[in-house]
Computed example of a mutant assay.
Amino acid sequence: MRGTVRNRFRGALAIGLVLLAASCGSAQVPAEQHGHDDREHTEQGLRHASSVPHLSVDVVRALEHDPRAFTQGLEVAGGSLYESTGKHGESTVRALNPRDGRVLKQRRLPEKFFGEGLTVVGDRVWQLTWKAGVAFQRDRTSLDEIRRVHYDGQGWGLCHDGTKLVMSDGSSRLTFRDPNTFAATGGATVRLGGEPVTELNELECAGGHVWANLWGSDQILRVDPGSGRVTAVVDAAGLLPKGERAAAGVLNGIAAVDGEFLLTGKNWPRLYRVRFVPR
Rank of each mutant, 00 (worst) to 15 (best):
W130N: 09
S80F: 14
G208C: 07
V197K: 02
A77M: 10
E244I: 02
W130P: 01
A236C: 07
G133F: 00
E244D: 13
L240I: 06
P241H: 06
G45A: 11
L203F: 03
F261D: 01
K164N: 11
L74M: 10
W130I: 04
L214N: 04
E195A: 13
H48F: 15
W268D: 01
R177K: 07
R138G: 05
H48L: 12
A206I: 14
V233L: 12
D169R: 00
F113M: 07
R108Y: 10
F261Y: 12
L55Q: 06
G89L: 07
G25W: 13
L13G: 10
G162E: 04
P196C: 04
F114I: 09
L128H: 03
R148I: 11
R140I: 14
L17N: 14
L251V: 09
A69L: 10
F136V: 03
L262W: 08
Y151K: 04
L63D: 00
R147H: 07
T163K: 13
G249A: 05
D224Y: 04
S172Q: 13
G253Y: 07
R99I: 14
R99E: 14
A236Q: 02
L214A: 01
L221V: 10
A184S: 13
S91W: 00
S84P: 05
A135K: 05
V103N: 05
E32D: 12
V57M: 09
S26H: 15
A237D: 07
R140Y: 08
H209A: 15
H88M: 09
L17I: 15
E83I: 10
G226E: 12
R2D: 09
V125M: 00
A256I: 11
H54F: 11
F9W: 15
T141H: 15
V197I: 14
R173L: 13
N213F: 06
E204K: 06
R148P: 06
L74K: 06
H209N: 14
V274P: 04
E90D: 10
G243M: 08
L263N: 04
G207Q: 06
D58H: 12
G133K: 04
I220N: 02
G115S: 01
L17M: 12
G162V: 09
P110S: 13
P269I: 03
V125D: 03
L271W: 03
L192F: 04
Q72E: 10
F176R: 03
W215R: 05
T4W: 05
W126C: 05
V76G: 02
K112W: 11
V197Y: 00
A132W: 07
A206H: 02
V59I: 13
L203M: 09
I254H: 01
E43I: 14
E83P: 05
V125A: 01
P269K: 07
